[in-house]
């Protein structure tokens, strides 16, 4: 079994209004050293299969569903888990 941790964020060329609002809020908290905020989505999937097959499958799942690649990018980490952790 593997656990895939998937991170989806806007492409750098897309202005993300929610991240801008968070940055404004941080400056109201007097955290003036926060230069940039990235806001996104986080998913965890548990899958069985060989590592190569699972990696390919998660990539397809991200591309086809979890991210809209017209405006978002994604990355993911795969970690092996035992049946107990699953």
């Amino acid at each position: 079994m593997f656990k895939a941790k998937v991170y989806v964020t806007y492409k750098p060329s897309v202005l993300d209004p929610k991240a801008e609002v968070i940055k404004t809020a941080l400056s109201r908290m007097d955290y003036h050293n926060v230069d940039d905020v990235l806001y996104g989505k986080y998913f965890e999937l548990k899958l069985s299969g060989t590592e190569a097959a699972v990696r390919k499958q998660v990539d397809t799942i991200c591309d086809q569903l979890l991210a809209n690649v017209n405006m978002e990018t994604y990355r993911f980490d795969l970690e092996p888990i035992t049946e107990d952790e699953a």
Partner: peptide, 17 residues
Amino acid sequence: LTEAGLLPGALQWNRDL
């Protein structure tokens, strides 16, 4: 239609949320 790939581009949150 954009999600389905029948039209180009995507719709995101309004500029002022």
